[in-house]
Write a protein that binds this DNA or RNA. Structure first.
Lengths: 206, 206
DNA sequence: CCTTTATTGAACGTCCACGTACAGTTAATA
DNA sequence: TATTAACTGTACGTGGACGTTCAATAAAGG
């Protein structure tokens, strides 16, 4: 009955799929998941409603696809090859600066909200977003510090992440203040590294 | 025209107001804001729809009221008079344990989600929740440490908060793992205090 | 060629929640 | 007592989005 008709008949247009995704992205961010409708997305994509149903079945599936794509993009932004500097500490600092610069972007913030809003109804979404975002970032950071502090690196990376994204950055996420300035990021990142450095005796040698 | 008819005619029944609030709380937590309807809340409260419109005008207003009430309750839970112990550090640790015990509760987590989900559409909600929750907690913690480290106390309190509620507690919030056990809380709280203690030379004297 | 699938545009019936209105009651004040 | 306003139950019209169907056209395979 339900055999795979792979190469029979017309193909689904991948370009339309992309247009739908882009439109969905736009609508979700603009109106939030609750107010987003398939019809609005179809119209925004310049595509018929039936086509949307054909590519993705439901709003949830659409959101899932959108978030996955974006998580990937954000993630690869974070893990972009870092400039190697003289000391390990400088490397860590650069990583932090780069991370916070990404986290303060309007786009990133909006996506965090979008995902958080669905935490109860679509837990897999959160998992996917977290795993391909934060989790990979932490791994990278830990790898960076491992030469110096060994197995404690994972723990230290987690603490650094917590410090970096807590405090004022958390306020930014909640919309309680505007995005951190470059100076604030630099200052905050270094300060946190200092704190963790003392606790884990990260030192200056390379 | 629009004079205040304060004491003319029947009064709005405060008990019904409470029933509506309780019902709204239940419905919001159960179905999320997006799927909550005034009719469902009215029926859950055993009250006519018109009465709900009379007490609160909109769903948003209802959510606002519900969140304010809950934030107050959570907040007063956090700032409950602490057991005085021998050392300042023990006091701080007790505060942290108490805080994390509150944060891991299903109820608290659900409310954080509810608020986060509305961050874009109802920013005032986030502000209110944060101010009467986190912010007061931090003040208290800072006050606790001020005798020892003076003006740095605010900064230190913020760092501690970040460390405490980051890492695994953050995973709990995202639904990536079950709530922290008592042991985990105890251990984590002490460890964080240790880290911050080293950076700010919190010491054992009282 | 023929068959199968994708896509469109429009139309469909359904459902659900909205916000309001009405007539009748219950409770407060003056 | 008369007045004013809070309530109830019910009903109404409206609008929005759902998910599906249909006939027609376009693209891909055998």
């Amino acid at each position: 009955m339900s055999a795979r008709h792979k190469s029979v008949g017309r193909q689904k247009d991948p370009e339309k799929r992309d247009r739908i995704l882009a439109a969905a992205r736009k609508v979700f961010l603009l109106r939030g998941f609750g107010a987003a409708t398939i019809e609005a997305i179809a119209s925004e994509a310049g595509v018929s409603k039936v086509t949307v149903y054909g590519h993705f079945g439901t709003l949830e599936a659409l959101l899932h696809a959108v978030v996955l794509a974006e998580a990937d993009s954000i993630n690869s932004a974070i893990s972009r090859p870092l400039v190697q500097s003289d000391t390990l500490i400088e490397d860590v600092i650069n990583f932090g600066i780069h991370l916070l610069s990404t986290l303060r972007e309007r786009n990133t913030l909006d996506f965090e909200h979008l995902v958080a809003a669905r935490a109860t109804q679509q837990p897999e979404l959160v998992t996917a977003y977290f795993v391909s975002g934060r989790a990979r970032g932490m791994e990278l950071l830990a790898k960076l510090m491992r030469p110096d502090i060994g197995e404690k690196a994972v723990e230290a990376a987690e603490m650094l992440f917590a410090l970096w994204s807590g405090g004022d950055q958390h306020r930014v996420l909640l919309g309680l203040r505007g995005p951190l300035s470059d100076d604030e990021i630099d200052c905050h990142v270094r300060f946190c590294v200092d704190v963790i450095g003392k606790a884990y005796s990260l030192d200056e040698r390379k």
